[in-house]
Amino acid sequence: LRLEVKLGQGCFGEVWMGTWNGTTRVAIKTLKPGTMSPEAFLQEAQVMKKLRHEKLVQLYAVVSEEPIYIVTEYMSKGSLLDFLKGETGKYLRLPQLVDMAAQIASGMAYVERMNYVHRDLRAANILVGENLVCKVADFGLARLIEDNEYTARQGAKFPIKWTAPEAALYGRFTIKSDVWSFGILLTELTTKGRVPYPGMVNREVLDQVERGYRMPCPPECPESLHDLMCQCWRKEPEERPTFEYLQAFL
């Protein structure tokens, strides 16, 4: 395994491009020591290896001592969030954005069929390849993070704006909380990567959403798509659509 080009840095580690087995181009995620327990990670990795779908980033291998390494397929255009905010983002029109959403829903419909939960679905965790191919990455890892700023769910590192209220408040993460996050991801797509709930801080978002506030229809977004977002944001988790439905609708 060779680490060649550093692609990015996040709160919990770095991402590199490299070569595996001398020939395969891969992405390598390294986790800061202390982010998660190697034992817990190894268990999760076994499950992650079983998830194989064309719209999920394929896991190739893991190094399960500290520092933990995760070796996955390489996606040339990086994260969907950076892609939307970058040069190419300007030229993306609604049909392409909807197609990308459908690809993500397709990957998540598979996660749904496998009775698995992602827990951290957002544009930053979707990767883009050639020809606007989108794949879901980092599934299941969020559960293992041991950082206090994260586990408190009120901490600075927790993605509260993407998280369903029952998950943020009571830790009830299910495929239905993933559906909520998918609704937020749809706003990221239609606004080219704007942060959700602009002008609001995490605490406010939690309070307002509890009181029934939902983001309005983004500019140039059809009402039918906003309606779909609002279905994803129904207060009762069981009233939210399935990913199978979302995939078919898109």
Rank of each mutant, 00 (worst) to 15 (best):
R2P: 07
R2D: 08
R2A: 09
E4G: 15
E4P: 15
E4I: 15
G8L: 00
Q9G: 05
W20I: 14
N21S: 11
G22K: 14
T24H: 12
R25D: 10
K29A: 02
K29M: 00
K32P: 01
K32D: 01
K32C: 04
T35A: 12
S37V: 04
L42I: 07
L42R: 01
E44G: 00
A45M: 02
V47F: 03
V47L: 06
V47R: 07
M48V: 00
K49P: 02
K50Y: 12
V57Y: 10
Q58N: 12
L59F: 00
A61S: 08
V63I: 09
E65A: 09
E66G: 10
E66I: 15
Y69M: 09
I70K: 00
V71L: 06
T72I: 15
M75A: 15
M75K: 10
S76M: 13
L80D: 01
L81A: 15
F83N: 08
L94M: 06
L94I: 07
V98H: 14
D99V: 15
D99P: 15
A101I: 11
A102P: 04
M108A: 15
A109G: 14
A109P: 00
Y110S: 06
Y110T: 05
V111W: 15
V111E: 03
N115G: 11
V117T: 05
R119T: 02
D120I: 00
R122V: 00
N125V: 01
I126C: 11
L127Q: 00
V128D: 02
G129D: 14
G129E: 08
V133D: 13
V136I: 11
A142L: 02
E146Y: 05
A152Q: 04
A152N: 03
G155M: 03
G155P: 06
A156P: 01
K157C: 11
K161Y: 02
A164F: 02
P165G: 11
L169A: 09
Y170S: 07
G171A: 06
G171E: 00
G171M: 12
F173N: 13
I175N: 13
K176G: 14
K176C: 10
D178L: 02
W180E: 03
F182V: 06
F182N: 00
L185T: 05
T187M: 11
L189A: 10
T191M: 08
T191N: 10
P196G: 02
P196M: 05
P196E: 00
P196S: 01
M200Q: 08
V201A: 13
R203I: 07
E210L: 06
G212P: 02
R214E: 04
P216W: 07
P216E: 09
C217P: 12
P222H: 05
P222S: 07
H226I: 05
C230T: 08
C232D: 05
C232L: 12
E236V: 12
E238W: 13
E239S: 11
E239G: 13
R240N: 00
R240L: 01
R240A: 01
E244I: 14
E244T: 14
Y245N: 07
L246M: 09
F249T: 08
